[in-house]
Design a protein around this nucleic acid. Structure first.
Lengths: 341, 341
DNA sequence: ACATCGAACTAACGCGCGTTACTAAAGCGC
DNA sequence: GCGCTTTAGTAACGCGCGTTAGTTCGATGT
C-alpha cells in the first residue's frame, strides 16, 4: 500500500463534487463578471470548496496567470531596528494589495546581495524594494535591471531608479523650530558624521529655522561627533563646558537619539535638569532609547514605516505600467513629543 | 506591433540554443547523477544558460516537483525587537537550506492570524513557524493542522505540537550565579509579572543558585513589578530604601533590561555607583538598552536567533518525515558580560 | 415553424518545469 | 556478424490553474 501523502484537493475535485466543469469553478473563484454564473451555481461551488477544504495553489495560479502576486524586499540586515519598520510598512501595504512580500537580507555582503537578487528573480517577484539602514547612495547589482525596483532610504548614484527617502532638511527644521518655539535661541547642534545626507540635510534645516527666527547662526554651536552614545557624551561635554555659563546653549539638538543618550549623561553629570535647565531634542525616534530615557526624549521620527508603504505603492504603479511622475519621493519626518523640551 | 512584454527565457530556449532537448537541460540543472550527461554537453548547456541569462522559474519548479521550497513564519508583530531576531535566525538557516522564508504578521488579531495561515497554506509552504514576542502558551487556528508546525518562544496548551523555548530556569540560575561569583550574597530580584513562564522559571533558577551557594533565601528580597522602566524604578526604590543600609541588597537581578533601566535611575539618584556600590544584572539583552546604558548592562540574552534557527531545523526534520525525539526543545540563555557587575 | 440570441456552461490549450519510459547509437565479447 | 550492455540522450505526460473559443439549450421575435 503506497503512502500517498494526502494529496491536496484541487480545483478538479471541487468541480467534480459540485457537478460542474473546472472552468466554471475557476470563473467563480476569480469572480469573472463576463461569464455569468447564476447565484445558485456559485453557492453550490462555494459549498463544495468549503466542504472539501479547498485552497487554491498560489504557485500554479501564478504560473498560469503569468503574474506572481509577490514583491521582494532586500535589506542590509533584517534585524536592524529600522529595517524592521520598513518591513512592517511594506508588509502591511503589500498585504492590503493582496501581494506577498519575500524578505531577504544582503548582510552587507555584495555576494549575498547578488544572491538575494537572483533568488527573488527566480521566484518571479513582480518588483523589488531595496532598503538601507541609513540614508545614502547605493549601486545595485546588474540583476536589478530585470524587474521594477524602488529604493527605500537610499538612492542610486546616477539617479535613474525611483527612490523614497526621508526629508532630512524638513526634519532638521522641525526639530530646531520646536526648540525655538519653546523660547530657545542658543541651540547647540551635535551633528552626525559630516558628508552623509542626514548630516547635510539636518544642518541645512537647522540653519534655515534659526535664520527664519532671526537668531544668528553661531558656528561654534555646531559640533560633529560620532553617532554613538559616547560621541554624544563627548560632544555635549564640549558644548556645555565651553565659554562662560551665560553663553552656554540652552538647548541641544542631537543628530540622533544615541548621541542624545550620551548628552543626557553629560547634562545630568553637571547637575543640570532636563528640560528645565537645558532642553534636548533627538532624531530617529528609536523607541527603545527615546521612550525609556528619563525624561522621555522628544525627537523627530524617521518615517521608515511610511517609506516602506510608499515604496510598495510606487512598485504597484510601476508594475501596472504607470509612469512615475517623480523619481525621488521624500517623506516627512514627524515630531514626537515627550518630555525633554 | 504587439508589445510582447519581454517574455522571459525558458528552459526550452536554453535547450534550443544548446542543441539538446529540454529534458537534458533539466537533468543538468538538477545534477541528476543517474542520467550521465558528458562534461562537454553540460558545459555547452551552462554556456547557453549564461548567455541567455536564463533563470529557473521557482514557481513552475515547485508545481512540477510538488515541493515548494519555502517555509512560512508567523509572528505577532514583525517589528517587535525580538521577532526580528527570530526572523534573522530562521532566515539564515532557511537560506542555508535553500529554502525561502515567507514572513507574515498576525498583528495580535485572531482574524489576521487566521488569514496569515490561509495565505501561507495557499503558497503551499512546506512547514510553518509560529513565533511569539514573549514566552507563553498559545492555541493555533485549525488551519495549522494541515501542515507541519513548530512553535517558537511559545508552546501549545495541550503540548501536542513541537516547540522551542528559552531555558528560563537555567537563565535565572546563570544571572544569579554570576552575582554570587562576584561575591554577592544579598541579591535583590525584581521579578516580572507573576505567573508567566519567564517569571516562574527565572525565580526558580534564582533560588536554585542561592541554595547551591548556601545563601539563605530571603523572600523580602524578591519584589514583582511591571516589566517597564518605571516599574523597575519603583521596585528598585523599594529594595534600596528598605530597612537599614547594612541590610540592603548589594546586587540586583532585574527580570528584564527595561526594569534594569529604571533601576539604574533609582541607584544613580541615591548617589550609588554601579557596580562598585551595587551590581546590576538584567535579562533579555535588548541591545539598544543594555549596550547604551552607562555603564553597559551585564545581562542574560534570550536566544531568539538560536530559537529561530532551531525551529527551522525541526521543520526540516518534520517535512523530511523524520520523527522528532522531543516535542519541547529548550535553548540556553547565554550570559552577556558588560560592566554592571 | 424557423432563425436568432443570450444564458450557462465546457473542451482544450498552454504556463515552465520534473520525471518516467523509451530509443538510437556505440562499444564489446565471442 | 550477432546479441548484449552502456552511453547519451529524447518524447510525452502531468503538476494545478487561467483563458479562449466554442457548444448546448431554452426563450424570444415574426
Amino acid at each position: 500500500m503506497a503512502t500517498n501523502k494526502a494529496r491536496r484537493v484541487t480545483m478538479s475535485d471541487v468541480a467534480r463534487h459540485a457537478g460542474v466543469s473546472r472552468t466554471t469553478v475557476s470563473f467563480v473563484l476569480n469572480e469573472r463578471a463576463d461569464a455569468a454564473i447564476p447565484e445558485d451555481t456559485q453557492a453550490r461551488i462555494r459549498a463544495s470548496i468549503e466542504e472539501l477544504g479547498y485552497r487554491p495553489n498560489a504557485g500554479a495560479r501564478a504560473l498560469a496567470a503569468k503574474r506572481s502576486e509577490w514583491y521582494g524586499l532586500i535589506t542590509e540586515i533584517v534585524t536592524a531596528p529600522f529595517a524592521v519598520d520598513v518591513i512592517k510598512g511594506a508588509q502591511d501595504r503589500a498585504w492590503a494589495d493582496g501581494k506577498f512580500l519575500l524578505i531577504t537580507a544582503g548582510d552587507n555582503d555584495p555576494a549575498m546581495e547578488a544572491a538575494a537578487f537572483d533568488k527573488l528573480l527566480e521566484q518571479r517577484a513582480e518588483g523589488l524594494l531595496y532598503a538601507t539602514t541609513w540614508h545614502r547612495a547605493v549601486t545595485l547589482p546588474p540583476a536589478a535591471r530585470e524587474v521594477p525596483v524602488v529604493l527605500v532610504n537610499c538612492f542610486d548614484a546616477d539617479g535613474a531608479l525611483p527612490s523614497v527617502v526621508p526629508d532630512e532638511v524638513a526634519g532638521g527644521y522641525t526639530a530646531t523650530r520646536r526648540l525655538i518655539d519653546a523660547g530657545h535661541r542658543r541651540i547647540g547642534f551635535i551633528n552626525l558624521d559630516t558628508g552623509i545626507p542626514a548630516a547635510v540635510g539636518r544642518l541645512k534645516g537647522y540653519e534655515q529655522a534659526l535664520r527664519e527666527a532671526g537668531a544668528d547662526i553661531d558656528d561654534t554651536l555646531v559640533v560633529s561627533g560620532h553617532a554613538t552614545a559616547d560621541g554624544g557624551y563627548a560632544a555635549a561635554c564640549e558644548l556645555l563646558d565651553r565659554a562662560d555659563p551665560g553663553h552656554r546653549p540652552t538647548a541641544l539638538f542631537c543628530g540622533n537619539d544615541r548621541t542624545a543618550m550620551g548628552a543626557y549623561d553629560a547634562i545630568k553629570e553637571r547637575g543640570l535638569r532636563i528640560p528645565d535647565d537645558i532642553a534636548v531634542i533627538g532624531f530617529d525616534n528609536q523607541e527603545l532609547i527615546a521612550a525609556y530615557l528619563r525624561p522621555g526624549l522628544t525627537t523627530v521620527a524617521l518615517p521608515f514605516e511610511a517609506m516602506g508603504a510608499k515604496g510598495v505603492d510606487m512598485l504597484g504603479a510601476l508594475t501596472a505600467g504607470q509612469p512615475l511622475t517623480t523619481t525621488q519621493v521624500t517623506v516627512d519626518c514627524p515630531l514626537i513629543e515627550r518630555s525633554s523640551v
